[in-house]
Amino acid sequence: MAILILAEHADGHLSPATLATIGAARALSEKGAGDIAVLVAGSDCAAAGGEAATVPGVNKVLVADDAAYGNGLAENVAGLIVALAPGYSHVLAPATTYGKNICPRAAALLDSQQVSEITDVVDSETFVRPIYAGNALATVRCKDAIKVITVRATAFEKAAPGDGGAAIESVSGPGDAGLSTHAGAELSHSERPELTAARVIISGGRGMQSGDNFKQLEEIADILGAAVGASRAAVDAGFVPNDFRSARPARSSRPSFTSLWAFPARSSISRA
């Protein structure tokens, strides 16, 4: 048995959600799931591969440096996973839009019923995952030969790059599937932590009255090292873009403290 992790990375660093996924893999490994290999796929991704090798607990890093994997196109990356997966019992990915896009595609090709967004590891084949937007927790057992799993980042302790010295191996896969191309992205650049991985979220609701007023929240957020979130009502009113939504379906933020103080935001879990 062994674990393969699909890493999400940017600018030479692993994403916080990937570090949490390594945390989940370490929990699995302790329960007898074997060694941990991290797959870093992308173009010019050697730096991220180097960082992955320093994370304690990681035994091996596989670097697939190919322009076809550069933009994380599911058709291409899933093909790479399928090519590598037969050597592993578990394939893990962070439950971010990156992992959620790619993982089920690979799972279907491996004829495996994926287990989505696990929040706890019971043993090497039993996992806890939220259903009904977190209103219930299901414990499920997966008997498939290759278990494909996405990991909810906020539920696991993040691993940290340290003094590990995993071997780095270069791998290649089928490359470009010729089905899709990346045509552009509009990313909102922010120095603040991402909502899916933040320890503290300052969230604003309709009570903020305008997008300009969110600047006040951003100031507090910067002092606290927090992420800025918003309710659906505030997003629908056009105050802030959609990626601010903290209670978005399938978006899993579990901050230690959410400020609803003076900026009314709905605190119930939205299922849609």
Partner: peptide, 24 residues
């Protein structure tokens, strides 16, 4: 995704089985 089991898988899996491209 369906709001009961919250899997977020079926579309991606279908695209894989058909060998088609996917826009999630």
């Amino acid at each position: 995704q369906a709001i009961d089991d919250d899997c977020n898988q079926t579309g991606q899996m279908l695209a894989a089985l058909l060998g088609w491209s996917q826009g999630t």
